[in-house]
Amino acid sequence: MHRRRRFRGSPVTSLAARTAPRFRDALAHAGIGFDDAQRHAIDRLSGPTDCGYYLHGTTGRGKTALATLYFDAIPTQHKTRVHFHDFLAGVQSHIAHSGRSHSEAIRSVIGPTDAVFFDEFHVHDVADAIYLTEMLGNLCNGRTLVIATSNYSPADLMPNPLFHSRFAPAITIITGSMTVVDIAGGPDYRTLAGPPERGFGSGSWICGPPENTGTPATPVPLCAGGIKLMALRVTGRAAHLTFAELCERPVGSHQYLWLADSFESITITGVPDLASAERDPLMRLANLVDILHDRNIRLDVHSAGPPGRILDAPAPPPDVARTLSRLGSLRTPTPGAGRTRAAPGAGGGTT
């Protein structure tokens, strides 16, 4: 058994105690109905903590919504919210361009803060595991309130058995210092919500022949995070690019974040049947979906098959359930029946 770190009377315990009634008040004014698992999570988030809260569960369970309400209720102006893709990209950029140490790069990205919120906490890369272990060791000190959401329980982080032991010290920090909150055991609310008029979920996943774009246009070069991407066309704040350009080339989070910051709508054409796609392009597609969803950028996809075919790929992405849940919020045009939602994970058809 590991020994739990105690910071009684610390700034974190005081800040959490002052946040709890404000959080409860925000929940009451939100007018949202909660299921049993969510109410249990709310009770845990309202209780004392030594370092912060690690909220985990399956996709669409309201983790980010609850954590956001909690974060907004924290009574300090010195707080930082960082999506995990942004955090990792920022740390890597600081190290590569300034030669700073891991600790200095982490401090530069997070900045001086009383509270920090990490959304979509995960780790699959051994290099990222090193950054995150050092980060957690620095933050879980009784002075910074940490909130994290994840699809993974602490024990399931860094699932690759070849490298899992490299992240064991970080898991010990999470379970020994943070209050772990399980919000599993309920429906994926993303599949139950009505389609939004704007943003990510207003887009569509279109199955069938390649998009008919009429007269071929001259490709438009985009300088995306240091890499040139060739767009089929750019119209105002909307960009059309091919799957080959976005996912089959060595493109990463820096480029996808640049696209999300530069455009309000992204269309991907020429997407193959995902069952036939290789591991790296699928991981890049999942990464792109995560970033566009987080930034609420409209996504339209023209593909040879439905999103659920990704499950039949030789090597689906590690977080394929989250990817499918998000793609399930896209609408699918059905001939003669208007537009309907895709069933997440379905091999075909609509609901």
Results as ranks from 00 to 15, higher is better:
V234T: 11
P250W: 14
I227E: 11
T323H: 03
L292I: 05
P307V: 05
N296A: 14
L229M: 13
M283V: 09
I206N: 08
E278Q: 10
V251L: 14
G328L: 04
P195D: 02
S204G: 01
A286V: 03
H254V: 11
V320K: 10
F243I: 05
L285D: 03
D300G: 00
R249N: 11
T213W: 10
L229I: 09
P272F: 05
H240N: 05
T267K: 11
R249T: 05
I291S: 01
H302R: 13
A321Q: 12
S329K: 06
H293K: 09
R198K: 12
R249L: 10
L327K: 07
T242N: 04
G226E: 09
A277M: 04
E248T: 08
L259G: 04
P306F: 04
P335I: 11
G199Q: 10
D312Q: 09
P306A: 15
V251E: 09
L330R: 04
D290I: 05
G308N: 07
H293P: 01
P210E: 15
A304D: 06
D319C: 14
P316Q: 14
R284D: 06
I291D: 00
P209N: 05
H240G: 01
D312G: 03
A277D: 04
M230H: 15
L299P: 00
V301R: 02
P307Q: 14
H240K: 15
A315M: 10
D319T: 15
A238L: 05
A313V: 00
A275G: 11
E264Y: 00
R237H: 11
G305N: 14
G214H: 06
I297T: 15
G336Y: 12
L232T: 10
T269Q: 02
G201M: 06
D300W: 00
T213K: 06
M230W: 12
G236S: 11
P272G: 14
T269P: 03
P216Q: 07
P314E: 12
V271S: 02
T235G: 09
N296H: 13
R233L: 10
G201N: 08
P317G: 13
I266G: 08
P307D: 04
C247Q: 00
G270D: 08
G336A: 05
L327P: 05
S303C: 14
D261I: 08
D280T: 13
D319K: 10
A313M: 08
P316L: 05
F263S: 08
P318H: 10
L288K: 06
R249F: 04
L288G: 03
C223F: 10
I206F: 01
I206R: 09
G226I: 06
C247N: 06
